[in-house]
């Protein structure tokens, strides 16, 4: 059964079509990858689905209901959670309190929210950090906090936006294990954006590729990786990226714009 259906979605910013006639479905229980070069429109697509802003045209159906016009809070209440690619936690909330905010979506009671949040933190392996401010944590832990906070709303569909960006290989292993756990053990449908293709290939059952706002390919990871159109879309990108990696010898840090 399709949990999410996107029909002919267009999102234009002035003259620029960040999403151009994109259609796809996400099945209940699936782990779907969404890849594409930088600026392809992946984050914009998430923002449209999550109700952060209305699409220019097209239709979005979630759990059998047309949700195209709904705002972000309504989408959250219907069971859609998402993380943010760029999240600057400047506030004074500690890790536990951050997750509690998500829990408060379903309860008014502070003690219930707290108990729920503690459970999630144990599950995600953040128990020892619960009293730290999010801003004082390393990037990898911050990413896990944003995942835990999204999970706290008990979603049916979880949208993850580049949760592995900026992490080193062993941290990426950890976060991928976390995603598998959320998908397999908690039974949550997951849609995963990743800029680096290889990561998505490992965990996803199916992959969608965006380029310049258009869907250029869709299918099992292995087929998509061999698709000449996809290779072409990525080639220029990768060339640039590899040159950058070799020139500063650093881990691949990607340059995302602030999503807003």
């Amino acid at each position: 059964m399709a949990l999410l259906e996107v029909h002919n979605l267009v999102k234009a910013f002035g003259g620029l079509k960040a999403n151009d006639d994109v259609s796809f479905t996400v099945d209940q229980g699936e782990l779907l990858g969404l890849i594409g070069p930088n600026g392809a429109g992946k984050t914009t697509l998430f923002n449209c689905i999550a109700g952060m802003f209305p699409p220019t045209s097209g239709r979005i159906v979630f759990a059998g209901e047309d949700v195209t016009a709904l705002g972000a809070p309504e989408m959250a209440r219907r069971g859609l959670a998402r993380t943010f690619q760029v999240y600057v936690a400047a506030g004074d909330l500690n890790v536990l309190e951050n997750v509690m905010v998500g829990c408060f979506m379903h309860t008014r009671s502070q003690s219930k929210a707290r108990a729920l949040a503690e459970g999630i933190l144990d599950d995600i392996g953040l128990r020892d950090l619960k009293l730290n401010l999010v801003s004082e944590l390393p990037v990898a832990a911050q990413k896990r906090v944003t995942m835990a906070t999204a999970l706290a709303t008990s979603p049916r569909l979880l949208l993850l936006d580049e949760v592995a960006a900026g992490l080193n290989p062993s941290e990426i292993e950890d976060i991928m294990a976390g995603i598998r756990h959320i998908h397999a053990d908690l039974g949550i449908t997951v849609m995963l954006i990743e800029h680096v293709m290889e990561l998505v290939m490992n965990v996803s059952q199916r992959v969608i590729v965006l380029d310049y706002g258009k869907k250029i390919a869709e299918g099992p990871p292995r087929d998509v990786a061999r698709n000449p159109v996809v290779i072409k879309a990525y080639l220029g990108e990768r060339y640039v990226r590899e040159r950058k990696v070799s020139s500063d010898g650093d881990r691949h840090e990607h340059h995302g714009r602030a999503d807003s």
């Binding site: 959250a76 943010f84 909330l93 309190e97 979506m105």
Partner: peptide, 26 residues
């Protein structure tokens, strides 16, 4: 400060987009 509204506000102060995504009518 410990109530749901109190938490929601602190979340709003931190980041309104995130707050909205957590079901808060900002």
């Amino acid at each position: 400060r410990k109530s749901r509204l109190g938490f929601q506000l602190r979340s709003i102060k931190d980041n309104e987009e995130v707050a909205r995504s957590l079901g808060i009518n900002v």
